[in-house]
Amino acid sequence: MDARTALAPPAKSPVPGGRNLHRFANPGRFLRLSGKVLPWFSAAGLVLTLIGLGWGLFFAPADWQQGDAVRIMYVHVPFAWLASAGYVGLALCSLASLVWRHPLADLAAQEIGPVGAGATALCLATGSLWGKPMWGAWWVWDARLTSVLVLFFLYLGHVALVRAFDDPARGARAGAILALVGAVDLPIIKFSVNWWNTLHQPATITLTGAPTMYLGMLWPLFIAALGLTLGFVAVILARTRAAVMERRIRALLLAQAQREQVLPRQVGA
């Protein structure tokens, strides 16, 4: 990457709608804004997670059928939501990168990948730990489980692909295409429990209907989900801030090296 392009303000977007997005593409503005919100997101995420998980683990009632194993739900369900939501974020960043050439979108997508993979791995692992005592099996090739496993591989594929090229811009472009194509897995995950006969239960909480869960279980679940979402966003913001600063460091070192190369030639002439 050229030192000038790394530090220059972003180019005007050729596509309508890109101008508003580019207001937030300035790395300096992003660092300032994220620096202000990051401590609040981190603190609120930590407090809400502790309240939600503590409530779910020690005070929420056990399920009449599942017993205390239902307490795994308070970590499993938020990570299932975050795995899908993270991929939506990855796909949106990829779209912004491909269509509007948003300079921060590439970096954000690159940082969402590993965190999303971690959330999906946690969803699968905690689901397995919940499935063993309830279904008698660690794993079944059920449509919901398999589609989430595909999501995990999509995340890993994205992480590997963006790092597979010498030119970071080409890696980001290839990763963005993969992320957009992979988004087809999201509705499959969502509707898998309706489209196929699955061992996994159908959705308990929907946007259209009333939840079929006792409120004493629903509240800690929502609080834990909110806390973990804030924590998830905080980790991605922190990683993206680090990536922006690392890019600046590379650009400054490159500019310094270019100056040092030019100077001896001028002195020699």
Binding site: D68, A69, I72, V75, G118, L122, A238
Partner: peptide
Amino acid sequence: MTHLTYIIAAYGLFVVVAVWFSATAWARM
């Protein structure tokens, strides 16, 4: 508490992954 081993394993795994991701992000920053 029933199924204690599974519950501890699930929450333990969460703590390890969450602490690792948070610590590495902050250290890198």
